[in-house]
């Protein structure tokens, strides 16, 4: 895990700024509060993605201003995760004992988040595929090997068990992913990745 450093290596005219650990961040992405965002490496943040790292626990809780001075991590994203265009990633918030509090958001490895999603989940585990235009309401917990179909609205506080397929408004479990979820044959003809599998090839192809 390495904190994203702004413009560690300038690429001449590319769409993406690539960091030392291999993260690719689009020049057109909106990222606020960079100090509170962690990218695991080989992670892609596409254009028009909005990462709200400025919404941290310390900034909003007025009762204890600047608890230790060090800003806490509000969004942490794992390795080989792809956040597609137009997606908003925002830490979940709730009214707790009279105070609005933001909680950290954790996204695992090899997660694909489709275009124009709205993510306010508490945690998304590894090997999760989220379709386009999906909405994850606050404090959703997504476990491993889950497929969220496009245009789903996952209601707040829902816990999605491992190996399930989720769809609908509100989302409910509509099926299970097969045993072969994420199993990829190495060296495929130009398609080195499948949904839920290792997204390294996909990350490599994005430039």
């Amino acid at each position: 895990m390495s904190t994203r450093t702004t413009a560690s290596r300038k690429v001449a005219k590319g769409e993406y700024i690539e960091t030392d650990s291999g993260n690719k961040v689009s020049r057109r992405a909106n990222i606020s509060g960079t100090a509170n965002i962690t990218l695991g490496g080989k992670t892609v943040i596409m254009a028009d993605v909005h990462l709200r790292g400025d919404l941290t626990r310390t900034s909003s809780s007025s009762s204890k201003p600047g608890a230790d001075g060090k800003p806490s991590t509000s969004i942490s994203i794992g390795r080989c995760t792809v956040v597609s265009t137009g997606t908003v990633v925002k830490p979940p918030m709730r009214m707790s004992r009279g105070v609005f509090t933001f909680y950290p958001l954790k996204i695992g490895d090899n997660v694909f988040i489709g275009p124009n999603c709205h993510i306010q989940a508490a945690s998304i585990s590894s090997h999760v595929h989220i379709g386009a235009h999906a909405v994850l309401q606050p404090f959703v917990m997504v476990r491993e090997n889950v497929k969220i179909l496009p245009h789903s609205v996952v209601p707040a506080g829902m816990i999605i068990p491992p190996n399930s397929v989720v769809a609908g408004r509100p989302a409910r479990i509509v099926g299970e992913v097969g045993e072969g979820w994420g199993v990829v044959v190495p060296g495929g003809g130009g398609e080195g990745w499948v949904e839920g599998g290792d997204l390294r090839e996909l990350v490599r192809s994005i430039r």
Binding site: M46, S84, G114, N116, A132, G190, E191, S205, I206
Partner: peptide, 14 residues
């Protein structure tokens, strides 16, 4: 067309 992988990188997405 290039492989499916590159189809993602477009602004329109998948």
């Amino acid at each position: 067309a290039k492989a499916r992988a590159t189809a993602v990188s477009g602004l329109g997405g998948l």
